[in-house]
Amino acid sequence: MYYLQDQTMDAIARELRTSRSTVSRLLSAARDSGLVQIQIKTPSDRAPELERAIRRRYKVEVHVVPVADTLNEVDVLDRVSMQAARTITPLVDSNAVIGVAWGSTLSAVSRHLTRKTTHGSTIVQLNGAGNTQTSGITYASEIIRRFGTAYGAKVEQFPVPAFFDNAETKRMMWEERSVRRILDLQQRATIAIFGVGSMDADVPSHVYVGGYLDSTDIDELEASGVAGDVATVFFRDDGSDKGIVLNDRSSGPKLEDLRKIRRRICVVSGARKIKGLRGALAAGLATDLILDESTARELVEQESASSDPILGFLNSLDGL
């Protein structure tokens, strides 16, 4: 009535036999929940153009969040997380199994979630969070709890280490019935929600600063040419993961198992994550991508440069 029929709030209030303030609250709730989304189109808005380019190249549904170049990385993350929360909520239905990876980005997204009533839905943690300094339960469970609270869903934590000391220990642990139950639930997921981890990000990925990796692990990842990770599973910028030894000890889902999930929502904030993002896209890990405009522009420009050597050379001159 308000957006499509151009009725005033007073007219709507009279027709619904309620107060104008109630109508105002309903309109605010519609915007906050993502039921109504408002976009401002300006002549200089490059978001639609960037979305088309990324969609065409990587075959993903994409939402580019316009942000000013003057914003710092924390503010950019907040804007992207807000858009991600509004994009995710309409996709969540009853009887869904939703896999959620913990991390700095998903922590921010979880704080912006709005309530949606579902029935028979489950939020399952995709990777363990324990390390030698902490159980990780408080950090990871808070993220998972917020998702569960927002959608009225059952919450299933994954109380295992993020990385095992030995691959054989992990193999034996995976045979335990209590662990097997969570693994089976992960494989039944209809939606997966995750960020991309990066050692170079301005807002550091929690896996790299939270005591999960020691100097030997970092050296090993660099020697393997690792570009980033999803749910503590690492890959190179071409999307390959063969021969990355640390993955044998990781509690996160194998990349081939992650690709089996029908809807895979990747949220990325910050151009310093571009290398990891390209790797994740090359690996086919995402069906939906939500990212800020600067990162989207960098992604498109890098892709153009790699496909056109002359353009790449000119872009390198432009950066000097």
Rank of each mutant, 00 (worst) to 15 (best):
D6A: 12
R262L: 10
G228D: 00
A201G: 12
I218G: 01
I191L: 15
R146V: 09
S110R: 04
E15W: 06
T138V: 14
T287K: 05
F234Y: 12
M172S: 08
R17A: 14
I137D: 05
L221T: 08
P309L: 11
K275P: 01
I88P: 02
G210A: 07
L77S: 00
A96M: 15
L16Q: 12
A150M: 10
A231S: 14
K254F: 13
S198L: 05
K254Y: 13
V76F: 02
I40K: 13
T118S: 09
T118W: 07
D10I: 08
F234N: 01
M173H: 09
T18I: 11
A140R: 02
L221I: 08
S205T: 06
M173Q: 10
V124T: 14
I191Y: 08
M9P: 07
G312D: 07
M9T: 14
L281C: 11
I310D: 11
T89P: 00
T87S: 14
L35C: 00
S224V: 05
R171S: 12
L311R: 12
S294R: 15
D32R: 14
G120I: 14
Q125P: 08
S198W: 01
I143R: 00
H206P: 01
M173E: 12
V230M: 02
L185W: 11
S24L: 05
R262M: 11
R236H: 10
T232Y: 00
K273F: 04
N95W: 14
L183K: 13
V155R: 12
R146L: 15
Q302A: 10
Q133A: 11
V209C: 03
R171K: 09
T149V: 15
S240I: 03
D229N: 07
D248I: 07
F313K: 12
V155M: 12
D200K: 11
T287F: 05
D78L: 06
A305W: 03
D308Y: 07
R236F: 09
V100S: 02
Y3D: 07
K154Q: 14
W174T: 08
L311G: 11
R188I: 10
F164V: 04
R86L: 07
P253F: 11
V179I: 15
T118A: 11
I40T: 15
G152H: 09
A140G: 08
E303H: 14
I265C: 04
L4R: 13
S224D: 13
V267Y: 04
A153D: 06
L16H: 10
S269P: 04
I265T: 03
F235C: 04
L311F: 13
V109Q: 02
R25G: 01
R20A: 06
S251M: 04
M82V: 05
Q7E: 12
